[in-house]
């Protein structure tokens, strides 16, 4: 299972998304607002989820702005942090 797929499954399960399955999430679709439709409170949960599953911390708004654009950007962020 590649990282993108793993992320999608975790997001659907841990954020209790009911009206979408992991394979319906597009890699480059926005996570927030239009796209997957997550909102600001989901962002709080997502920060914790990423830390719990990948041991990667999203510390502030600047990092969140980069990481939370799409599944692709989130996967890149996690990979980058794991290497550093």
């Amino acid at each position: 299972m590649n990282l993108n797929e793993e992320l999608k499954k975790i997001i659907v399960k841990d954020l209790f998304l009911e009206d979408i399955t992991w394979d319906q999430i597009e890699d480059d679709a926005p996570l927030f607002g239009e796209g997957l439709g997550l909102d600001s409170l989901d962002a709080v949960e997502l920060v914790v989820i990423i830390q719990k599953h990948f041991n990667v911390e999203i510390k502030d708004m600047d990092e969140g702005r980069v990481a939370f654009q799409s599944i692709n950007s989130l996967a890149s962020f996690i990979k980058e942090r794991r290497q550093s």
């Binding site: 600001s40 409170l41 709080v44 920060v47 502030d60 708004m61 969140g64 702005r65 939370f68």
Partner: peptide, 12 residues
Amino acid sequence: EGFLGGTLEMTD
């Protein structure tokens, strides 16, 4: 009213 409602700063 900031990015993601300021929630990331709150959590931090």
